[in-house]
Design a protein around this nucleic acid. Sequence first.
DNA 1: TTGGCGATGCTG
DNA 2: AGCATCGCCAAT
Length: 203
Amino acid sequence: MVSTVFNQIVEPSWLARPSPEVAPDLLGCTLVRQLPDQQIRGLIVETEAYALGDPAFHAYKRRTDRNRVLFDPAGRTYIYLIYGIYHCFNIVTDQDGIPSAVLIRALQLESVPAVDSTSNQNIHRIAAGPGKLCRVMQIERSLNGGILQPGEPLWLEHRGRQFQQQVDCQAVTFVQTTRIGLSQGIDLPWRWYLSNCPAVSRR
DNA sequence: TTGGCGATGCTG
DNA sequence: AGCATCGCCAAT
C-alpha cells in the first residue's frame, strides 16, 4: 500500500541552539509559506549564521527597535529591509535573551508558484538569493516576529526521507565557507550550502 | 566569464 | 553613510 509521509514540523526547542550549530542542520529542511489560496514550499539549500561577537550581526552592539526580535526565544522570524528594495528572512535561534539567527539565502522550490512575477526565470533560480526568495514567497516586514508553526504564514519541516537517502549515499554533501556580501566579519566560516545545487548563490 | 554600478529607503 | 541585494551592461 502507498502511504504519504509528511515531514515532521520543526519545533522551537530544536532551534534553541547557537546559530552556527543550527545553520547547517537547516539545510535540507523545507520552508513553507501559506498564502490564502496557495502554499509555496522550498528546500533550504544555503544558510548563514549570525551570532554574538560577530561584527556583521545586527545585534552586535545593542538592542534597538529593529533587532529586538533577535533577543526573543528561538522559533520566530527576523525580517528586515535591505538596500531599500529587498527583504532578508532569518530564523531566530538560541536561548531567550541571547541574540542569534540564521539567514536563509536560497531555496529550491518544489514547484513554480501560481502567480509567478518572475516567469522568465529558470525554476532552479527563482529563489536563489536572500532577496529573491523573499520576493517569490511574499515575505516582508509585516511577518517580522512571527512564530514559525503551522497555522501561521510560515513554518519549517524537517528533512524528508528522500533527502536523507541522498545524504546517506553522498549524492548530496555539505559545504562550509565564509559568508557573502559583508564588509565586517568576513573571515568567519559561517556559510553552508548543499553541493550540486543550482539555487545556491553564485560567487 | 568577471566586474562595476545604480536603484531605493530605512537605520543609528 | 552605509547596508546580510539584484540585475544590467561593458570589458575580457
